[in-house]
Write a protein that binds this DNA or RNA. Structure first.
Length: 488
RNA sequence: GGCCUGGUGGCAGAGUGGUCAUGUAGCGGCCUGCAAAGCCGCGUACGCCGGUUCGAUUCCGACCCAGGCCUCCA
């Protein structure tokens, strides 16, 4: 089965054919680390991490890079208002990002390059662009000359004339052309900076990705991915820089863009303020529920996030874990967890995760209805194998339902007492105990054989809300300093 | 204003030129000491108007609506 991907360059779904099957390269735009990311920011690493996983099953050597942008004016602003060096901000939030992504099961990149570790490459790239006539220096800045690149605007589907005519771009006096963008800019003494042929300065926003992709993956990469809000100007500018710095070589062969998360019907974004901070969501919800929900819609579609969708995600996973709970006695070794072909083929079709979930639902049905021990074994292996590829269903069901660690002596005692009452047909007492346990958040389900399942609901309140999220973001940042400006 | 997506059953969300998505919620029944779970069944889903077609939710056109980008943004 062929892997097919929707290529943003052609706006068509195409067969994925790597330039070199011996070394497949993928670059995903990572975060600018100046605060905690919101749940929408987690969609690319989760989705494209899954793509990396698929690629690694098919190609012997896949290099997946996900960068950290650790030099940026928002970082500078955060550091300045906190009265700390930018490192204090960037190391803290880069580490938090990495930890939170790990909790979501987002595949770790093979390389996580940082912009500040590539200043040399950035300067070299600027020099090359100037030498080849695609960039020019002016008043301590280096600017990309948009008019020098005929294909500028191809990815985002806009013409250079339109952009130049559109007067919404800030026009600095030193720009030849209003659409020209900054590769390098001067730093005042109070700002971080590096010595360069154009004086002490720092890189503009887009150049770091071009430099890091070149340094680690080469001049032409197979896949470049990120949110569709980056298509313009970020990815457009990356293409311009890299293509011109590499003598016209194709920069990225396949461009993948994920759709935005919406909340209250609008794009979740920092500027709108309707964000749910991932770091906080992870405290209130099972990471697996969050991961499931991130994969619930096809990655190119918008994905609606709400209390309702969260509860529905939880309920679906409960159902699948219940199957695993009922089959807890069926031993399945790691080697026996093969990925069912239907699950993989769904994902190979441009990462059709909703289709993969439909397959998983059928596998769960099959496991529920399996009669013989052989059939049970096979069905459980398929469910765990398919879930494994999606990064789901790998927990002990007892842990999932909470009884793995929440069963106290009191609960154990009451369960024993209840079983005795039931066998003595003292149903009044049995019901009473069930009520007592329910009040403690423990649900008892009787099984036909006289035993019971116990389900503990520790996370009783699975709700969301922006106000507390914003507050938590505030206090988290405030730990770095007591005077923080969170205006962005 | 320009460019680009999308409008599917209460909710979420795939897909297809002609019996089925799937999940979740609801209703009825079976099962159960009672529940829960499970099982069975149910609800005239494809924005609107035309066109093409034997047949369109699926193709084409117009319209309406929503969202995204054009400025920092995953």
């Amino acid at each position: 089965m062929q892997l097919r991907l929707h290529n943003g360059l052609t706006r068509r779904t195409e067969d994925f054919v790597p330039a070199n099957p011996e070394r497949v390269t993928m670059y995903v735009c990572g975060p600018t680390v100046y605060n905690y990311v919101h749940i929408g920011n987690a969609r690319p690493p989760v989705v494209f991490g899954l793509l990396a996983r698929l690629l690694k099953r098919r190609y012997p050597n896949v290099v997946y890079a996900r960068n950290i942008t650790d030099i940026d004016d928002k970082i500078n602003a955060a550091a300045k208002s906190a009265g700390v060096p930018i490192d204090a901000i960037t190391t803290h939030f880069a580490a938090a990002y990495r930890e939170d992504m790990a909790k979501l099961g987002a595949d770790e990149p093979d390389i996580a390059p940082r912009a500040t570790a590539h200043i040399g490459q950035i300067i070299v790239m600027c020099e090359r662009l100037i030498a080849s006539g695609h960039a020019y220096a002016a008043e301590g800045h280096v600017l990309f000359d948009v008019a020098s690149f005929a294909d500028y605007g191809r990815l985002s589907g806009r013409s250079t004339e339109d952009m130049i005519a559109g007067a919404r771009v800030e026009v600095a006096p030193y720009k030849k052309n209003p659409a020209d963008f900054v590769l390098w800019k001067p730093s005042t003494p109070d700002l971080p900076g590096w010595d360069s042929p154009w004086g002490r300065g720092r890189p503009g926003w887009h150049i770091e990705c071009s430099a890091m992709a070149e340094a680690h993956l080469g001049e032409t990469i197979d896949i470049h991915a990120g949110g569709n809000d980056l298509m313009f100007p970020h990815h457009e500018n990356e293409i311009a820089q890299s293509t011109c710095a590499h003598g016209g070589k194709v920069f990225a062969r396949y461009w993948l863009h994920n759709g935005m998360l919406t909340f209250d019907g609008r794009k979740m974004s920092k500027s709108l303020g309707n964000v749910l901070v991932l770091h906080e969501l992870l405290e209130k919800h099972s990471p697996e529920v969050l991961r499931f929900l991130l994969l619930k819609a096809h990655y190119r579609q918008p994905l609606d996030w709400s209390d309702t969708t969260l509860q529905q995600a939880r309920a679906t996973l409960d159902g699948w874990y219940r199957v695993l709970l009922d089959l807890a006695d069926v031993e399945v070794s790691a080697e026996e967890r093969k990925v069912p072909a239907e699950v993989e083929s769904a994902l190979l079709d441009d990462l059709n995760t909703p289709q993969a979930f439909a397959v998983l639902a059928r596998l769960a049905d099959g496991a529920r209805s399996a009669a013989t021990s052989e059939a049970k074994h096979e069905a459980k292996a398929a469910l765990l194998g398919g879930g494994g590829l999606l990064g789901l269903l790998q927990q002990d069901p007892n842990i999932w339902f909470g009884s793995g660690h929440a069963e106290t002596d009191v609960v154990t005692k009451l369960r024993r007492e209840r079983r005795a009452a039931r066998s003595a047909k003292n149903f009044a007492r049995a019901d009473e105990i069930r009520k007592e346990l329910a009040a403690m958040g423990v649900t008892i389900e009787d099984k036909p054989d006289g035993t019971d399942n116990v389900i503990v609901r520790e996370r009783l309140v699975e709700t969301i809300g922006t106000s507390s999220s914003v507050k938590s973001q505030l206090s988290a940042t405030a730990q770095l300093s007591d005077k923080v400006d969170l205006s962005n």
